[in-house]
């Protein structure tokens, strides 16, 4: 599990996170939701060690962020990258094989190739394997990054707003793949989502944030309500229960 205690963070004097204590259970998908500026992405980037922790501690499994070695962490915690940051001209299969880096330090062996091959198959990327990353659609690229995180073979996987700029087909497709990683491979997934309906549809556990603190958490059907929307997001929207799942009518 991921244990966060006493975590505070401020950027240029403005507090972003205020003394957060949170335990994210092992297994399943935990979604971080909340209004813009609630601190979801900051929290995720601190777990992903993309920013230095100012106060507080985070442990992932039995590793403490900040003291554990980079390699151990990379074998425990995968972060699905934002596709916009890749400047190298890469073929899709080359990108996916980078996921094996924490295990082979850039010297892939036969089992690494087999693993990549299997991931390409599973994520439906075989026909695209020789394409360059700038030649495929946004949804295909996100799927490639998901495959890269998959072959990293870590018990924990972090995703920061992976559905940005994806159409409904690509978004549902990606979420099903993430769901499958949690169910079939037992990965613990922590994901920042904007759309509450995606969160209630795919996540097992919701953490709702507001103003740098945890506002609510729990199972989706017990967390999302009209009262919560008004209190946390400051908007009045109807919530209907459809097939045992709360759906926000926008």
């Amino acid at each position: 599990m991921i244990r966060i205690s006493g975590l505070s963070h401020s950027i240029a004097g403005t507090p972003i996170l205020r003394d957060i204590d949170l335990t994210i259970p092992r297994g399943g998908i935990t979604a971080l939701i909340g209004p813009n500026g609630a601190g979801k992405s900051t929290l995720l980037s601190l777990i992903a060690r993309l920013q230095k922790i100012q106060t507080g501690t985070i442990t992932v499994g039995d590793l403490t962020i900040g003291t554990a070695s980079d390699q151990d962490l990379a074998r425990t915690l995968a972060v699905m990258a934002q596709s916009s940051h890749v400047q190298a001209r890469l073929r899709l299969s080359e990108l996916v094989s980078f996921g094996r880096y924490p295990w082979n330090r850039g010297r892939p062996g036969p089992q690494d190739h087999a693993r990549v091959e299997q991931a390409l198959e599973r994520f439906g990327l075989i026909p695209l394997r020789d394409r360059f990353l700038d030649e495929i659609s946004g949804g295909q690229r996100q799927r490639a990054f998901a495959a890269m995180a998959y072959v990293q073979d870590t018990p924990y996987l972090l995703l920061d707003e992976p559905l940005n700029n994806l159409d409904i087909a690509a978004a549902r497709d990606l979420m099903s793949l993430v769901r499958d990683m949690a169910d079939t491979d037992g990965r613990t997934v922590v994901i920042v989502l904007h759309d509450i309906n995606y969160a209630t549809a795919f996540a097992d556990h919701l953490v709702v944030m507001k103003d740098g603190a945890i506002a609510a958490q729990g199972r989706p059907d017990q967390t999302v309500s009209e009262a919560l929307l008004e209190q946390v997001f400051g908007t009045r929207a109807r919530v209907e229960i459809l097939q045992d799942r709360p759906v926000v009518l926008v």
Binding site: L50, L77, A81, Q82, V86, Q87, A88
Partner: peptide, 20 residues
């Protein structure tokens, strides 16, 4: 050389792969 390959993926990806 191998570490530079990873760095070319961008800062976030490189950190995630254990190469801050």
């Amino acid at each position: 050389r191998l570490r530079l390959d990873v760095l070319a993926l961008g800062d976030a990806a490189a950190t995630g792969l254990g190469e801050p």
